[in-house]
């Protein structure tokens, strides 16, 4: 038993590599690659056939990804040993769908962290890329909508899922992503991004694959049902009205203090100036009645 576990552990470590190594990427090259993919003639046939999809994905990969991740997704190191792009063998389709689907990859420039940006590829191309990377080695697949949807649950079960998700969220997620999912700071310029308003699929994939510096919450760690509940709780936060008026970015006491000073003290000092200001004077003399 123990041996089996060990080997499972060994296996899994090849499937993960640091995704956020600082890469020295030329923006121009990437742009060229991106533009090429956008304008290159449509691939023959539909993406339905898996073989064709993988082939299409490989071509996209060679153009847009291989510069850092290597010709066969094996990862690259620069001469001084820095990781340019991690190995993608075994990261699975979910990681590709998350990274490319949220526009994080292809990376525009190296930095402490790759931010979300408008995506470069359309859904078909992302699917092709994902299929290709998934063919490199077994890894988590793109979750199905049924994995994170509350469809078909009774109201009570739904309620239970949201409440449960809230507790899991507050235990595992708020430390970095803040109590409202507004995001937070991490060491050396890194940050935990805002996760309010992010599509459930990407949240699920992030939990599954642990993009960049985020730890992963694989199914052995956080069960699929628990992931679903977290997503349900986040959804309920978004559906919830702002009971007490407009939020100040959901960042806690810092913006609240700022508002107290700027809006509160600002307007009250303004009022004081008005109260003490001299009113208009007339040049006329008072006629004593």
């Amino acid at each position: 038993m123990r041996l089996l576990n060990r080997s499972a552990g060994r296996l899994s470590r090849h499937r993960r590599g640091p995704l956020a190594g600082l890469a020295v990427v030329l923006l121009g090259l990437l742009l060229t690659g991106g533009l090429y993919t956008v304008f290159s003639p449509a691939q023959a046939g539909s993406a339905a056939a898996s073989e064709e999809q993988i082939a299409q994905g490989r071509e996209l990969f060679l153009v847009s990804c291989s510069f850092c991740h290597g010709q066969n997704g094996e990862g690259m190191r620069s001469q001084d040993g820095n990781q340019l792009g991690p190995s993608l063998v075994g990261v699975g389709a979910a990681a590709v769908d998350f990274q490319v689907g949220t526009g994080r990859m292809p990376m525009a420039r190296p930095g402490a962290q790759v931010p979300r940006k408008p995506e470069t590829f359309d859904q078909d191309e992302i699917a092709a890329l994902a299929a290709y990377v998934a063919s490199l080695g077994p890894g988590p697949a793109i979750p199905d909508e049924s994995d994170y949807s509350l469809e078909g649950m009774s109201d009570e079960e739904r309620q239970q899922a949201i409440t449960n998700g809230g507790q899991i969220f507050l235990t595992n997620c708020t430390a970095c992503h803040n109590f409202e999912g507004s995001g937070g700071a991490m060491p050396r310029g890194g940050f935990a991004p805002k996760i309010r308003g992010v599509e459930p699929r990407y949240i699920y994939e992030a939990l599954l694959t642990g993009p960049q510096n985020m730890p992963n919450f694989t199914n052995g760690n956080l069960s699929p049902d628990e992931k679903r509940d977290v997503i349900a709780y986040l959804g309920s936060l978004e559906d919830m009205p702002d009971y007490g008026g407009f939020g100040l970015g959901g960042l806690g006491p810092v913006p609240e203090g700022l508002a107290a000073w700027v809006l509160g003290i600002g307007s009250l000092v303004g009022a004081a100036v008005w109260i003490a200001a001299h009113t208009t004077r007339s040049t006329k003399k008072k006629v004593e009645a």
């Binding site: 499972a8 552990g9 899994s12 499937r15 993960r16 235990t171 760690n221």
Partner: peptide, 21 residues
């Protein structure tokens, strides 16, 4: 055990990069 749910953890449940509260 895992927080909130209280289930015990096997080493094989975790992969590299996992964090359990």
């Amino acid at each position: 055990v895992r927080d909130v749910v209280g289930t015990p953890i096997r080493p094989a449940d975790l992969e590299i990069g996992d964090l359990v509260n």
